[in-house]
C-alpha cells in the first residue's frame, strides 16, 4: 500500500519539479500555516521514511557514512524552510544524495541513483529503459539539485560529528584497559548510533561534538564500561560546554528514533 503510494509519487516527479521551482518563494509562507499537531507528526514520519530511504540508498550505492550524513543533513535543512506540501520529498532526497556526493567528493552517477531509487519503489522490477522518460527523470533530479542549492543559499557543507567521535574513541581507548576495549564493541555501537541519528532532526539540531559525545556515552553505558574519572568526567574534558542534562536530552531524542522506526514501518 505504502509502496504503491510512493511509486505513484515517483512518477509525478517531473511535474512536481516544475511546480517546485515555481513555488519556491511561497514555500516559507505555506509552512507557517501547517500547525496542526497530527499533521506535524505525520510529517516527522514522512521525514523519517525519506531519511531511511536516503540511508538505504546510500548503502546500495556504496556511499561512505559522511556523504550519507551530508545527504540527510541537506534534506533536513531543506525541509526546515520548505514544505512537504510543495516539494516531493523523495525527489529532494535523490537530489540530496547526488549533491552530497559532490560535496563530500564521492562521485555518484545519476544513473545509479535513479536505478537504485527506482528499484526501491518497485522492488524486483527490471531496471529502467534508458529512454526519454529516463532522461527526463534525470533532468528533474539535476533541476532539483539546483533548487536545493538555492534554498540553502549554497551552504551545503556541514561539520559532522563523525570525526569528533573517532577522535574521542581513540582518546577513550587509551584510558581503558586494552582487553576490555577489544572485547567490547564500543566503537561499533557508537558509530551505528551516530549513523542512526541521521534519521531525524537530531543531527542538525545539535552541535557535532555533542552528538559525538552522546553516541559515545550511550555506547559506554550500554556495555557498562566504566571510565576512570578524576575531577572531571571524560565528556567534560572532550567538550567543555556540555552538561549531563544535555547529554540526556540528546540521548532521549536519539533513542526516540528507534521507537519511530517501529511506528513507521
Amino acid at each position: 500500500m505504502l509502496l504503491k503510494f510512493q511509486a505513484s509519487r515517483f512518477c509525478v516527479h517531473i511535474q512536481l519539479t516544475m511546480q517546485a521551482s515555481r513555488s519556491a518563494h511561497v514555500a516559507t509562507g505555506v509552512e507557517n500555516n501547517v500547525t496542526a499537531a497530527g499533521e506535524s507528526s505525520n510529517e516527522t514520519k514522512t521525514h523519517f521514511r525519506v531519511c531511511r530511504f536516503i540511508i538505504e540508498t546510500g548503502v546500495k550505492l556504496g556511499m561512505r557514512s559522511v556523504p550519507v550524513a551530508t545527504a540527510c543533513s541537506l534534506y533536513h535543512k531543506f525541509f526546515q524552510t520548505a514544505s512537504l506540501q510543495v516539494y516531493e520529498p523523495y525527489l529532494v532526497a535523490m537530489s540530496c544524495i547526488y549533491l552530497a556526493g559532490k560535496v563530500e567528493e564521492q562521485h555518484l552517477r545519476t544513473r545509479d541513483i535513479i536505478n537504485v531509487c527506482h528499484r526501491y519503489f518497485r522492488p524486483g522490477s527490471d531496471p529502467l529503459e534508458l529512454d526519454e522518460k529516463f532522461w527526463e527523470l534525470r533532468d528533474s533530479v539535476v533541476q532539483c539539485e539546483l533548487l536545493i542549492l538555492r534554498q540553502l543559499n549554497f551552504h551545503v557543507s556541514f561539520e559532522h560529528p563523525h570525526k569528533y567521535l573517532l577522535h574521542y574513541l581513540l582518546s577513550v581507548r587509551s584510558l581503558l584497559n586494552r582487553h576490555a576495549w577489544s572485547r567490547t564493541p564500543i566503537a561499533e555501537t557508537a558509530w551505528a548510533l551516530l549513523k542512526d541519528s541521521y534519521h531525524g532532526l537530531v543531527c542538525v539540531r545539535h552541535q557535532p561534538q555533542h552528538l559525538a559525545i552522546t553516541a559515545l556515552y550511550l555506547a559506554l553505558h550500554t556495555y557498562g564500561v566504566k571510565v576512570p574519572a578524576g575531577e572531571r568526567e571524560w565528556w567534560q574534558v572532550l567538550c567543555e560546554d556540555i552538561t549531563k542534562a544535555q547529554i540526556e536530552a540528546i540521548l532521549t531524542e536519539l533513542l526516540q528514533l528507534y521507537d519511530m522506526e517501529a511506528k513507521c514501518t
Binding site: R52, I55, E56, V59, G62, M63, R64, S65, L166, L169, L170, A187, E188, T189, W191, A192, L193, K195, D196, H199, L257, Y258, E261, A262, T265
Partner: peptide
C-alpha cells in the same frame, strides 16, 4: 578502529 564504512552499520531493524 576496524569499522567498515560502506556496509550498513545500524541498530535500526530495517537497516
Amino acid at each position: 578502529l576496524g569499522i567498515g564504512d560502506t556496509q550498513s552499520h545500524s541498530l535500526m531493524r530495517g537497516l
